[in-house]
Design a protein around this nucleic acid. Sequence first.
DNA 1: TTCTACATTATAATAGTTCTAAACTATTGA
DNA 2: TCAATAGTTTAGAACTATTATAATGTAGAA
Lengths: 139, 139
Amino acid sequence: MFDNSQYIEKLRSSGLRPTKQRIKICEVLFDSEKTFHFTINELVKRISKSTNDKISLATVYNTVHAFKNKGYLKEIPINSDQSYFDTNTSHHHHFYDETQKDLIDIDDADVEPVKINTRIPGKKIKSVEVLVKVEDDKS
Amino acid sequence: MFDNSQYIEKLRSSGLRPTKQRIKICEVLFDSEKTFHFTINELVKRISKSTNDKISLATVYNTVHAFKNKGYLKEIPINSDQSYFDTNTSHHHHFYDETQKDLIDIDDADVEPVKINTRIPGKKIKSVEVLVKVEDDKS
DNA sequence: TTCTACATTATAATAGTTCTAAACTATTGA
DNA sequence: TCAATAGTTTAGAACTATTATAATGTAGAA
């Protein structure tokens, strides 16, 4: 454990107790320079690689959902047998490579703003997500 | 059974045997004027309402996937514990009402074409799907 | 009508996720 | 400092959607 103070502060300020499990998960998710996508399964693997203290699956689920609710993670809408999350919470869209089963960020500058010229009465727009499915170009 | 000839022809022409289960599922899916969204669960309920012959769950899954592969149904990318399908296979996007857990079509005329100004080498775009999440406006 | 390839079916299996309830612990306040 | 308590972790069971399996059934061709 080195500089966890930022995570401790982050957790505390959002009303989450800075337990060692949550701090470890913060490290795995937010220490790296680059943001990334993951499934719960992949996250569990990353965690077990970076620590000897086992964190139970249930705690990983709880923590990911807590972080998602706090806005530290985004869930990516995609048809899959498992949920995909993104540590990049800034506004951006995705390619989904159906051949490779791989998610790729689309820089927000590369997408013209999506204009929706209709509304549902009594509802407000929470998010607009674009998923661009791609496949191998064999033509 | 009334005018099933259209479905029989449709199935036959796409290389699917027009069995009575498939014809019944066609009726439930395509008889109505309006297109609609459904989960497998909901479809099973619709089927059992409209017939006394029970169709097994496995057959419903098989048939829906076959129809999806033939392009008679579209799967809607959304984070959910179950898959959503759409009998409207024309190009259009969706609202997802997170309060009501309800999918609503967005008329394609109400969305400006989405321009993606970047590509992935060796891949071609298969589809561009927009999901607009909405929630109750309480502000 | 008979044959055969394909379909259907019930059931089992699998996998992702959520639930439960007991043990644990960070924080509060005495 | 220490005890109380409110929230947290945990293992495992339970749940649910989906897929696989293998036996039975059947549409369509010969």
